[in-house]
Amino acid sequence: MLIFILKRLGLAVLVAFTVSFISFSLLFMAGDPAAALAGETASGEDIESIRKLYGFDRPMLVQYGDWLISALQFNFGESYYFRLPVSSLIVDRLGVTMTLGVCGITFALLTAVPLGVAAAIRPNSIIDRVALFLSVAGQAMPSFWFGLILIVIFAIQLGWLPPSGASSPAHFIMPTIVLGYYAMPAIMRLTRAGMLDVLSSDYIRTARAKGAPEGRVLFRHALRNAIIPVVSLAAVQMGFMLGGSIVVESIFALHGAGFLAWESIARNDLPTVQALILVFSMFYIVFTFLADVLNAWLDPRMRSS
């Protein structure tokens, strides 16, 4: 188990370095950073002096090394727009994003897994059909539209929930539902398919032959095996929620990291964009790693491979 964890950790670090290089080089793909920084009215001389000032004239690998060493110390330079350290900007915004992400994935898992299990127990039953309808609807509705519909109903017409902002737990209810509902269909379908597959397996028959009660057969024997691919999927979804909640954060005016990313892209604030891409990628890497460890715990076969 320890060897497995170390191997995966090594792999994760490797991926992290690759990602850091890619996110660094984005700066150069987006055009001349000095020109962007200098503004539209700047002269050629101004641009050259900015190029020197920010060190853009050095070889790219040297710049990358510099940037990486700072990044490892959580120093991403200064935001072009806010004129503040990028790291403190991100730290300020991350709380909202993480709260939203954790709530979103929890909501998704708590609805998707029970629905998936129920659908698998009775395929083609009413429950299965309702679950199918919900997942198709979830997949088909764009988040921004679903978010607006919720605002219209629950904030404007019924007045039950605040339409925007992040000042109380109630502010997070609608964003959680919108974000969670986006992840729900895939998790639900995977749970259902996994359960159907496992329930027809020989070892489930063995469990029944031992006289195990149905609940024990379903949850101890079947779900434990069926949930393994779901864990991997949920990890990716979680990474997505932390990085990709840009739309949801914009609709509900939650000033989280996703919203910051959107602002920074709009303002060509490259150090911030770079840092956010790196942080979001790290989330993916960390969650994938955690999912691997969790899966190895769930499935002993994975530990030895």
Partner: peptide, 22 residues
């Protein structure tokens, strides 16, 4: 259920898949 596994038991054809891998 009370009978199965207690007073009557069964051995299946496929030992490779009849045990729970987890």
């Amino acid at each position: 259920r009370a009978l199965r596994g207690d007073r009557m038991a069964m051995i299946f054809q496929e030992p490779m898949t009849s045990l729970n891998p987890a």
